[in-house]
């Protein structure tokens, strides 16, 4: 009788101890995973650091590359006099992706022959609105694009 009681008591202590450990495990596992740095170790800022350099843009046949800015697609391109410009890459007519035409010195949408100047103004064809501009800043080899003036 007495031994039976001890076993029961022992079992309860075991479940209690196990439960505490398991619960602590359930609490600490996500916490441990959380503090493990993710593959990209920091948040991207609204000033976007591009993963390529000016040389990469110059190497492109169209003298332009695309970049992802939040939910938006942008295009960065070599203007004349080697100035870098960046615009939204989404045509304001029917949302096709625009491209650089270094031979014409304009940004061009192939879908319906829409044309934009390098500062984003819709200058020909169906586009109803200009493309919005990104600010480009070069620090050494690194290119930053942002929407703000900073």
């Amino acid at each position: 009788m007495a031994s039976d009681k001890t076993t029961r008591r022992g079992f309860l202590e075991f479940v209690l101890g196990g439960g505490v450990i398991a619960t602590l495990g359930a609490i600490f596992y996500p916490m441990f995973k959380y503090i493990t740095p993710p593959p990209v170790a920091e948040a991207k800022l609204s000033q976007l650091k591009l993963s390529f350099t000016r040389a990469d843009i110059e190497a492109e046949k169209q003298k332009a590359k695309y970049f992802k800015y939040g939910r938006h697609l942008g295009i960065i391109f070599l203007e004349d006099k080697n100035v870098l410009g960046a615009l939204s890459a989404i045509c304001t007519h029917l949302q096709c992706t625009v491209q650089n035409r270094p031979d014409w010195g304009i940004i061009w949408c192939a879908c319906h022959n829409g044309k934009y100047s390098y500062d984003g103004k819709n200058i020909s064809g169906p586009p109803p609105r200009p493309l919005f501009q990104f600010k480009v800043k070069e620090v050494g080899d690194t290119i930053f694009v942002s929407l703000e003036d900073s």
Binding site: E42, A43, K44, L45, S46, S146, E148
Partner: peptide
């Protein structure tokens, strides 16, 4: 202003 939202999103 240019990191708060981005970091929460991150």
């Amino acid at each position: 202003a240019d990191s708060a939202y981005e970091s929460v999103r991150f």
